[in-house]
Write a protein that binds this DNA or RNA. Structure first.
Length: 907
RNA sequence: GGGCGCGUAGCACAGUUGGUUAGAGCAUCUCCCUUACAAGGAGAGGGUCGUAGGUUCGAAUCCUACCGCGCCCACCA
């Protein structure tokens, strides 16, 4: 048994404890048929990521669950790893090249990828290192990366399987195009933001007429690609114009006026310009009416040759220019301000452009069906439940997923085109709901580059230059990280093990993540789980809140309002960070952070340290670790009490943990340790500190407390536990304490509560009468009845010491007298204090105080009287509630009696 | 246009299915460096639970409307 340093210094222990624990392989999970498995896969942070508060929260939650379950007897596995984050990573490396005045095109695809890999080698493990400083018990030897060789096999396998099944197709569609990243994006990657913009009303001249048709648009530059103007077929204002021709201003192109039900006659002028290549609705109309598709933009967002004189200028510049030009031509009717939602790139926040383009898509509807069912019937549960609706709503309206990206960093599509018979001849019509499941001529989807075209024998084979959406690899995370798919033919020992591991650990227990990736990732993992593993990937989904600053704004680097968890760790320590974060994280609620909040955790660490230090000192070198805690009947009140409290605390704690109520859990631990163990029990124990029985209880309660603290604050708990037990093991390898129901005793708790209440009342008296803390007082107690008298008499020692009482006398409550001495009333007895002098005591003030108390009590009494005289209440309320009320009324009346008596006894 | 969350003490928040006198933290005030801890101890003050109705014997809790704040989804140009 060693001593603890006088001052707690997290810097001396945290890293040491983490590394020590890792060295013992305690973070590693393996197939163990003797135990049930409990596994979590980490939401893989972007390989470009640096730890922010959101990660800190997310991973602390997972770590608590893993550590708790491991101690509770499960074989646990927390699978760590990183995501290659296609666009994000490519952007980072491109920016780096830009500093050397290079673009990716300058150096070419191969060289560029070398740069990215080099970057990944150098910086890719940053976030992993940072997770370790958070104390995460991840199974690091299993760390995966979504572009690992094996993982990439899984991605290809999935692409091929879905293609063969007809669920992946290539088609021309309107997609979201980011002109800065120069790639297509999925709908989820182009979130809409409300923006204040303008609604421009343009005058389109009718051919052979002086008349105009007015159209309204928010994007006037797209008029260069207009191929029709649409009106509602029933709109009386325009009916006669249907089929007439318009001379499109600036280009002088002739376009038709068409009728379409889509048009809302009430909006704008009731006439809509139709730009099929640059708007999803117009695209649909274009299809319906067989209109021409004119693309007016280059991939970088500048106008192309179809834009005539505007060719080469940026889309927003052209917008202004066109408005100017139309104004000159007197073709601008008016401009109104107009707020509308505009899609933005989720990586670079550039306004996206709807773009008609040939891309690869996944047909989602068939995949969504089992994933919808599993949540509906409760096989997968969201916590908190409200996300169920959000999920189902998205699932039920699911759209096809655009998975091809025009970037270089990622899994390249396993698609090859024959230079002779492929490509052009292979267009797939995507407006049929039927999936083509025949291979298209000249397109080869295969793991390896084919030697020659199976259709025409040509050896001119080109691989599709595109890569897959990052999420097309991360949706396989729960099983691809285990080495899926397993090649039957080449199955070796390692594959066999991997397969067993997948069988054992899949489905995982719980997925812990933030709400913003429910669609990106959570929903798709469920779909992939059913499609490729024939079952759910996880049973529970714990959705935690977003970390915000104290004014409610989301914390982000770009806003400059973020609190760096690493800085907090440096200033307050890992355990303090974890404890503070979790304690303010109510289930699913956003959390509002300010730096001061971490003092809470720091202070608690300090408290744990000092309390432990006290206990260690007072064991006096006596080893009680092998002593048995006596049955409660043989213990003194305080000892029996703390055991009762510990066990009922544990009961509550287990319950909270089972429901993922981690803030509740951590606050239960805090409340017990600080306000019961430290504030009261340690003080009580000082009086019996020579008893082996008390020492044993003290030791036992501390030892067990450290165990239950461990999942939340792993490092300090290990450090102290090792010192206290003299054991060099780690708490992760110890068992979670069992609830000892025998020790939970309501009567003991009540008796102790009485003593504590009297003690507090005496302290109150002292404080109100300005008695110095070190001065002793004499106290006379007038207990209500024999029972109270016995309890207080038996435990008077506690009062003498904790309330600094010199002489404690007991008297008959019906016969107490006082001169000018301060008095108070605690539950069960009247207290009279006599001080050495009467200095500072004012009987008039005292009477006023008592009167105020009586008034307050009378209010409660009146309320209860009314309640208990209410026939309806007596009839309808449960008997026990009524009984409680009656009892409470009785007590209130007794309380008043006591106060009256005190008052009249005062001079 | 739908949907969700939040308005509780000066501040930022808990409050599990409705049930004694609504709770801890930070801050404030008083007293204390009492031999585990001043990152501490002992006390104190501070709330008509956003507003207005309703259901109920009983509402911070359930229902309705409204007012603020925040978020998500959606092809009205």
């Amino acid at each position: 048994m060693e001593e603890l340093a006088k001052k707690y210094s997290f810097k001396d222990i945290e890293e040491k404890q983490y590394l020590g624990c890792e060295k013992k392989s305690l973070f590693h999970g393996e197939v163990n048929s003797a135990k049930k498995s409990f596994s979590i896969v980490i939401p893989p942070p972007n390989v470009t990521g640096i730890l922010h508060m959101g990660h800190a929260l997310n991973n602390t939650i997972q770590d608590i669950l893993i550590r708790y379950k491991k101690m509770a007897g499960f074989e646990t596995l927390w699978m760590p790893g990183t995501d290659h984050a296609g666009i994000a990573t490519q952007n980072v490396v491109e920016r780096k090249l830009a500093k050397e005045n290079l673009t990716r095109d300058d150096i070419g695809r191969e060289k560029f990828l070398e740069h990215v890999w080099a970057w990944k080698q150098e910086y890719g493990s940053t976030i992993i290192k940072q997770l370790r400083s958070l104390g995460c018990a991840c199974d690091w030897q299993r760390t995966r990366f979504t572009m690992d060789e094996g993982y990439s096999d899984a991605v290809l396998e999935v692409f091929i399987r879905l293609y063969d099944k007809g669920l992946i197709y290539r088609g021309n569609r309107i997609i979201n195009w980011c002109p800065r990243c120069q790639t297509a994006l999925s709908d989820e990657e182009a979130p809409h933001k409300d923006m204040e913009g303008f609604l421009y009303h343009l005058k389109y001249p009718l051919k052979d007429s002086k008349q105009f048709l007015i159209v309204a648009t928010t994007r006037p530059e797209t008029m260069l690609g207009d191929t029709a103007v649409a009106v509602h077929p029933q709109d009386e204002r325009y009916k006669h114009l249907i089929g007439k021709t318009i001379i499109l201003p600036l280009t002088q192109r002739e376009i038709k006026i068409i009728a379409d039900d889509f048009v809302d006659p009430a909006f704008g002028s009731g006439a809509v310009k139709v730009t099929p290549a640059h708007d999803p609705n117009d695209y649909a109309m274009g299809k319906r009416h067989d209109l021409e598709f004119i693309n007016i933009l280059h991939e970088d967002g500048t106008c192309n040759e179809n834009a005539g004189e505007y060719n080469g200028r940026d889309r927003f510049e052209v917008r202004q220019a066109i408005i100017e030009d139309l104004k000159q031509l007197k073709l601008l009717e008016k401009i109104e301000s107009h707020s509308h939602a505009v899609g933005h790139c989720y990586r670079c926040h550039t306004v996206i452009e709807p773009f008609y383009s040939k891309q690869w898509f996944v047909k989602m509807k068939p995949l969504s069906l089992p994933a919808t069912e599993a949540v509906k019937d409760g096989r997968i549960k969201f916590h908190p439940d409200r996300w169920t609706k959000v999920y189902l709503n998205w699932m039920e309206n699911i759209q096809d997923w655009c998975i091809s990206r025009q970037i270089w960093w990622g899994h390249r599509l396993p698609v090859y085109y024959c230079g002779e018979c492929g490509e052009e001849g292979s267009q797939i019509s995507n407006d049929k709901s039927q999936i083509p499941n025949k291979r298209n001529r000249g397109i080869i989807v295969a793991r390896e580059r084919p030697e020659k075209c199976p259709d025409c024998g040509s050896a001119v084979i080109k691989q599709d230059p595109d890569v897959l959406d990052t999420w097309f690899s991360s949706w396989l995370w729960p099983f691809a990280t285990f080495g899926w798919p397993f090649d039957q033919k080449t199955e070796d020992g390692r594959q066999k093990t991997a397969k067993q591991e997948l069988d054992y650990f899949y489905p995982t227990a719980v997925l812990v993540t933030a709400p913003e990736i429910i669609f990106f990732w959570v929903a798709r993992m469920i779909m992939a789980g059913f499609e490729f593993m024939q079952g759910i990937p996880f049973k529970d989904i714990y959705i935690h809140g977003t970390v915000r600053d104290d004014s409610g704004k989301k914390m982000s680097k770009s806003l400059g309002n973020s609190i760096d968890p690493l800085e907090i760790i440096a200033d307050y320590g890992t355990d303090a960070l974890r404890f503070s974060l979790i304690s303010i994280t109510a289930m699913g609620q956003d959390i509002y952070l300010a730096k001061e909040k971490f003092e809470f955790g720091r202070n608690f660490c300090n408290k744990i340290w000092n309390a432990s230090r006290f206990i260690l000192m007072n064991l006096n070198g006596q080893d009680v670790s092998q002593e048995t805690v006596l049955p409660k009947q043989q213990l003194n009140l305080a000892d029996a009490w703390i055991l009762s409290r510990f066990n009922s605390t544990l009961l509550k704690l287990n319950n909270s943990l089972a429901q993922y109520r981690l803030n509740e859990a951590v606050n239960i631990v805090y409340e017990f340790f600080w306000h019961q163990l430290c504030d009261w029990y340690i003080e009580f124990s000082k009086l019996n500190i020579e008893d082996t029985a008390t020492k044993t209880v003290l030791y036992s309660v501390l030892e067990k407390s450290l165990r239950i603290i461990h999942p939340f604050m792993p490092l300090i708990s290990d450090e102290i536990w090792q010192k206290v037990t003299g054991n060099d093991a780690y708490l992760l390898a110890q068992a979670w304490p069992e609830v000892a129901l025998d020790y939970i005793d309501e009567n003991i708790e009540k008796e102790m509560q009485l003593v504590m209440d009297v003690c507090v009342s005496i302290r109150n008296l002292r404080s109100e009468n300005n008695i110095k803390p070190k001065d002793k007082v004499d106290i006379a107690l007038y207990p209500e009845d024999k029972a109270v008298l016995n309890i207080l008499a038996k435990n008077s020692n506690y009062l003498l010491n904790l309330a600094k009482v010199e002489n404690l006398n007991f008297a008959d409550k019906n016969n107490f007298q006082t001169s000018i001495n301060p008095t108070a009333s605690a539950a069960g007895c009247v207290i009279v204090m006599s001080t050495k002098s009467d200095e500072g005591f004012d009987p008039i003030k005292e009477k006023e105080k008592i009167n105020a108390q009586i008034r307050e009590l009378n209010q409660h009494i009146q309320r209860k009287d009314k309640l208990l005289n209410n026939a309806n209440y007596l009839k309808k309320a449960p008997a026990d509630v009524v009984e409680k009320e009656k009892q409470s009324l009785l007590e209130l009346n007794q309380e008043i009696d006591k106060l009256e008596k005190i008052k009249s006894a005062l001079k």
